[in-house]
């Protein structure tokens, strides 16, 4: 990878990011295999941070592995598990190890995960974390002290274009832009008309938006996502399309749908790129 994520975003070309989910345990062979498969096909790779509040190998560990293997990592940081001291310290570590991209998230709630009795920290939220990064770039920490060596990051955040109701999310989006987000990766989108409307709003701001793409592998999965994943809406026509696929071909039909969506997003320049989440089927 020769180009940084920021350079790629600034170049104006259609940017592609994907993500790596670290393992639960020390057996990292599969994660490394996924990194090797993807690192040269995309502009940058996110590493999830205890996604869905499930304890795993840390994001920073995955990012270091990507870096070592010549890829461009995006460090996902949630505010659920660390207070402001630990978050700032990790930013210092990340910077010294050449990690230049951070995705700031508030984090899923503790009860959805696998350590239900844990304490959720939420000392900061995603907007405050973005703010913290910009502050640390100016050479100060949150306590108002001088840093001996500042940081510099391409900082991003997430947005849910299909949230119901949408307006509160849009207000939050603006707040994240204000706090210093330069790029957004969205929750999975499937309805391009809705998404185009969202982009009309987002285009008022000087930020890059990468549309979230999650491969649908079956009609059942699509229905499950509609019922259980906040802010995801798979339109009925796509569900029908998956359901009509001959036995054993739903997956390839899903790939076809995702490919078609990405092609339209790119051709019509609806957004600045895509963030492809393959959930273990890369």
């Amino acid at each position: 990878m020769t180009q940084s994520l920021r350079e790629a975003l600034d170049s104006g070309r259609f940017v592609i990011t994907s993500e790596i989910g670290p393992p639960k345990g020390t057996n990292i062979a599969r994660m490394l295999h996924h990194i090797d498969l993807l690192k040269d096909k995309v502009d940058a790779l996110n590493v999830t941070d205890h996604q869905s509040s499930v304890m795993r190998f840390p994001s920073i560990g995955g990012c270091l592995a990507i870096k070592e293997r010549g890829g461009e990592p995006i460090l996902q940081m949630t505010c659920r598990d660390r207070n402001r001291l630990a978050l700032q310290a990790e930013l210092l570590l990340a910077y010294t190890r050449g990690i230049r991209n951070v995705l700031c998230l508030t984090g899923d709630a503790i009860p959805v995960g696998d350590h239900k009795q844990a304490r959720g920290v939420f000392d900061l939220d995603s907007s405050q974390l973005l703010h913290t990064i910009r502050l640390m770039e100016s050479g100060k920490d949150l306590g108002g002290n001088d840093l001996d060596g500042a940081v510099e990051f391409c900082a991003g955040a997430i947005v849910t274009p299909e949230a119901k109701p949408l307006e509160p999310q849009l207000a939050r989006f603006e707040k994240k832009v204000e706090a210093g987000a330069e790029f957004f990766q969205t929750q999975a989108i499937y309805d391009l008309e809705n998404f185009t409307r969202f982009m009309e709003f987002a285009r008022q701001f000087r930020v890059k938006v990468l549309a979230g793409i999650i491969l649908l592998v079956s009609a059942r999965m699509a229905r499950y996502m509609n019922d259980n994943v906040p802010g995801v809406l798979v339109p009925q026509n796509l569900i029908d399309e998956l359901a009509s696929a001959p036995k054993g071909e739903a997956l390839s039909r899903g790939i076809e749908i995702a490919g078609r969506m990405i092609a339209t997003l790119r051709k019509d320049a609806i957004c600045d790129g895509v963030h492809v989440m393959a959930i273990g089927r890369e």
Binding site: R80, L105, T106, G107, D108, A109, P111, V112, G120, F122, D125, S126, S127, Q128, I158, V159, T160, A163, K164, P165, P168, Q169, A171, R172, K175, Q187, P230, G231
Partner: peptide, 20 residues
Amino acid sequence: CHKGLINGPCGGTNNGKCEV
């Protein structure tokens, strides 16, 4: 708010309900 957030909703809001 389940997470005690002071800067607006998280991404978990679902049809006006809390993700938890």
